[in-house]
């Protein structure tokens, strides 16, 4: 464990909690892409099946349980409890265009052709594109609530910090995982234009609105 990975995990946890609290307190999921949240629940489910097969540390297990619990709670709020506030007309990204290629790639490019490893690889590839429905929805509505931009900032920051963690681990431990690194670079690149808008607008107190 290193400071970049720990900060990354805490940034990820912050993002997940910010979103869940925003939806729960405002009793509304307006502007939130339910499709992206379903994809994240799928990412955690397929990646953390090793909760059943191996124990790494209390930290590892606790964080996995929290991530899975919060992501399912978020999906439940969006599609069940607060369904009336879900903006389905703007959440129209075709997720099958993500899941099918990612599923195929996981079979073709992986470290080991075993079920757990294929699912882990699928989860890594899926996570790198899971935010696309949310970014697409913001481009369609042309704006995002400020709290939603903070959620996206911490979510994007977490994988950027993981990239530094992988540089650190390569240098000090000789560890590197090409699949996670390539997917992590793609994932972070997808946030770049959002990061630009976040820094130039939201941090200056303006609302995030895209030229419609």
């Amino acid at each position: 464990m290193n400071i970049f990975r720990l900060t990354g995990d805490l940034s990820h946890l912050a993002a997940i909690i910010i979103l869940l609290l925003k939806i729960w307190k405002s009793r509304s999921c307006a502007g939130i892409s339910g499709k992206s949240q379903v994809l994240f629940a799928l990412v955690f489910t397929t990646r953390y099946l090793d909760l059943l097969t191996s124990f790494i540390s209390l930290y590892n297990t606790t964080m996995k349980v929290i991530y899975i619990g919060c992501s399912y709670a978020t999906v439940y709020l969006i599609y069940m409890k607060l369904k009336a506030t879900y903006d389905g007309n703007h959440d129209t990204f075709r997720v099958e265009f993500l899941i099918v290629p990612v599923g195929g790639l996981a079979f073709l490019v992986n470290h080991d052709f075993s079920p757990l490893e294929i699912l882990w690889t699928f989860s890594i590839y899926l996570e790198s594109v899971a935010i696309l429905p949310q970014l697409f929805m913001i481009s369609k509505t042309g704006e995002a609530e400020t709290i939603t931009t903070h959620y996206l900032f911490f979510l994007g920051l977490y994988r950027a910090l993981y990239l530094i963690n992988w540089i650190w681990r390569f240098y000090f431990e000789g560890f590197f995982d090409m699949i996670a690194i390539v997917a992590g670079v793609v994932q972070t690149i997808l946030y770049c234009d959002f990061f630009y808008l976040y820094v130039t607008k939201v941090l200056k107190g303006k609302k995030l609105s895209l030229p419609a």
Binding site: H12, T53, F55, M63, Y67
Partner: peptide
């Protein structure tokens, strides 16, 4: 490889 999994990261 740790236990059944090779991945120690979240």
């Amino acid at each position: 490889v740790i236990g059944q999994t090779r991945h120690d990261e979240l």
